[in-house]
Amino acid sequence: MSKPEKTDIAAVRTPASKEVALVYLKIGTVGFGGGYAVMGLIHAELVEKHGWLDEQRYQNMLSLAEMAPGALTVNLLAVIAYRLGGVWTMLIATGALILPSFLAILLLAGVILAWQGVGLVQGALAGLTSGVVGLMLAVAWDLLEKFPRHWYYYAVGLVALAADFFLHLNPVWLILAGALAGGGKAFFFSRRGGSAGKPKSGV
């Protein structure tokens, strides 16, 4: 695959693991709130400002990160760090990314757990809970875009909803069952055109 010339120049400059860790520390400190806000910051830092990877590579890494379990931002930054400098860089840089929020959480956990009986803190928690419920519903709505618009997947979702409500199974079993349902469908029907297997992506 031939790359544009600008990319080749950028790819030559491989950063030291310390350099990567410092940039990740910055992202971990100012990257509030997860989701699209942080994705923009990551792109600005790594692609635009430091030029450690080009747009094409960034998109490749992103689609890779979406396949793995866990937080998208951590997955994305971990795999980019691995590509930039191997396993050590990945471990050090990811640690640097997580450290600021780890410390902030400890501080807040201490405050909240110590003062959870105070009226104002209870009010704050009541507000927080409402905000979290709203956010979760919004995230669920956004996730609907990530699988194919086909009755089969909506049926899988409805079955999971019913199973969770009536059977109180551990979510792990439901997730495994979902993987089986989706994988089984692809296994048996992938030769028949497979248009149903195409995600409605590009969001």
């Binding site: 396949m67 979760m136 979702g157 089986l180 469908k185 692809a186 297997g197």
Partner: peptide, 25 residues
């Protein structure tokens, strides 16, 4: 395609689980 299919099968379950936790909260 089977790996892709597994991801596509997991996501509706995740949506259902998130909705249930939101309702529980």
């Amino acid at each position: 395609p089977v790996v892709q299919g597994m991801m596509h099968g997991v996501l509706p379950v995740i949506v259902a689980l998130i909705v249930m936790v939101a309702l529980g909260l």
